[in-house]
Design a protein around this nucleic acid. Sequence first.
DNA 1: CGGTGTTATGTAATAATATGACATCAAGCA
DNA 2: TGCTTGATGTCATATTATTACATAACACCG
Lengths: 144, 144
Amino acid sequence: MGHAHTSTETKLAKADALCADKGLSLTPLRKRVLELLLESGGPVKAYDLLAALKPDGSAQPPTIYRALDFLTQAGLAHRVEALNAYMACVHGHGDEIAELFICENCGTVREQHAPALPDHTPEGFQISRSVLEHYGRCAQCSNA
Amino acid sequence: MGHAHTSTETKLAKADALCADKGLSLTPLRKRVLELLLESGGPVKAYDLLAALKPDGSAQPPTIYRALDFLTQAGLAHRVEALNAYMACVHGHGDEIAELFICENCGTVREQHAPALPDHTPEGFQISRSVLEHYGRCAQCSNA
DNA sequence: CGGTGTTATGTAATAATATGACATCAAGCA
DNA sequence: TGCTTGATGTCATATTATTACATAACACCG
């Protein structure tokens, strides 16, 4: 099978399994939002998802924010803080944090695990969530 | 003098010097905003700054956003991405990035330089700005 | 001195992002 | 059946940020 590009369906199936494991319910709505994120392949704005979900404009903001909350809690999506956007997260990071490289020119995002960030945590501080994002220009756009 | 707590005025003077160096102009308005940030000692929301600036409500949003843009460009303040807030940055980080530890309970933020983050930068990616923020509970609040 | 360009600020309007509150619905189960 | 719980629908509104254009301040040059 190689390591090539996993299909959206496969990823959705994985998400199903993962939710089943954790006792979470990946409802049709939530699954559809995840699918939209996967199809996009990059960060997507909440209101764009909302529009994609119901092109007639009939869906209200809480719909999408709730789905996104669920997906981020479940570890199936990240919020890209500095873009106010969201993206699918296919690889379950265990406790490792996601490290994002975001091209300000073309908008592509490269994601990787950030293994073993050196620890400067103040004595006694309990981390619940970490954000590590880099902005700049990707190789393509640097050359242009 | 010890290393104890540097006064706001001292920090403002430093900011003046720093701007002079770089050929930037720390106007009264910008300086006042920096002062407000310094006085607060923590992250402050844009609209709160706006209110503090002109308690009569006469100041408009662009006023504060422009000042904040200037300060962040000048390296005198950071935007705390995941809070949509801003805080003064007294120590000029050279090229090192700021690492923030943000207590979700009491709202305090501890800032440090993040020396030598291990480099996972994709080949050719040019970083212009990095965000490293940790959310959780500080020592005080963990115990409580 | 007057004109001209540049940077900073003022002001009005509106866009973009996000949440609160309450109603409804569907599934599981006492 | 009726109750409880979790999910979704819907309306209203709060919060955060930008666009566009007007004015002011100030240096520079003729």
